[in-house]
Simulated assay, not measured.
Amino acid sequence: MRPFPLLLAACSLALSLSACGGKKEQKPRAVPLVEATAISRTSFTDDLEAVGTALANEQVVLSAPVTERIEALNFADGGYVRQGQVVARMSVAQEQAELAAAQAQAKQAQQQLDRIQALKARGFATAASLDQQLAIANAAKASADQSRAAIADRVVRAPFSGFVSLRTISAGAIIPAGTAIATVSDISRIKLDFTVPETRLSTIREGMPIKAVSAAWPGQPFNGTIATIDPVIDPATRAVRVRAILPNPGRRLKPGMLLTVSVLSRQRQSLAVPELSVVGDGEDRFVFVLEGRTAKRVKVDTGVRQNGLVEITGGLAAGQKVVTEGVVKLTDGATVRLAGDKAAPGAGKAG
Rank of each mutant, 00 (worst) to 15 (best):
M1R: 10
R2K: 11
L7T: 09
L7W: 13
L8W: 12
A9S: 14
A10Q: 10
Q26I: 06
K27V: 11
K27W: 09
P28H: 10
V31P: 04
V34M: 13
E35G: 14
T42G: 02
F44D: 03
F44W: 06
T45G: 09
D46H: 10
A54P: 06
L55K: 11
N57Q: 08
V60E: 10
L62Y: 05
L62M: 06
E68G: 08
R69A: 11
I70C: 03
E71K: 14
N74A: 05
F75D: 01
G84R: 05
A88G: 05
M90Y: 14
M90Q: 12
E98C: 00
A100N: 11
Q105G: 14
K107A: 15
Q112D: 15
D114T: 14
Q117H: 03
A125F: 00
A127K: 09
L130E: 13
Q133R: 13
A135V: 10
A137T: 00
A139N: 08
K141C: 00
K141Y: 02
A142S: 08
D145Y: 02
Q146R: 13
R148T: 02
A150C: 03
I151R: 07
A152T: 04
D153N: 09
R157V: 11
F160Q: 02
V164H: 00
S165A: 09
L166F: 11
L166H: 12
A173D: 14
I174T: 15
I175C: 07
A177E: 14
V184S: 01
I187K: 03
I187G: 02
R189W: 09
K191R: 15
F194H: 09
M208F: 12
K211R: 14
A212Y: 08
A215N: 08
A215Y: 05
N223L: 10
G224R: 07
T228K: 13
I229N: 04
I229M: 07
D230R: 08
P231D: 07
P235E: 09
R241Q: 09
A244P: 02
I245C: 00
P247I: 06
R251S: 07
R252F: 10
S262D: 05
S265M: 06
Q267P: 01
L271T: 04
V273M: 08
E275T: 14
V278W: 12
D281S: 13
F286P: 05
V289E: 12
V289G: 03
R297T: 04
G303R: 06
G308D: 03
G308F: 02
E311D: 04
I312T: 04
I312L: 07
G315V: 02
L316H: 05
G319K: 10
V323M: 10
V327F: 12
K329Y: 13
T331A: 13
D332S: 04
A339I: 14
D341T: 05
P345H: 02
K349M: 12
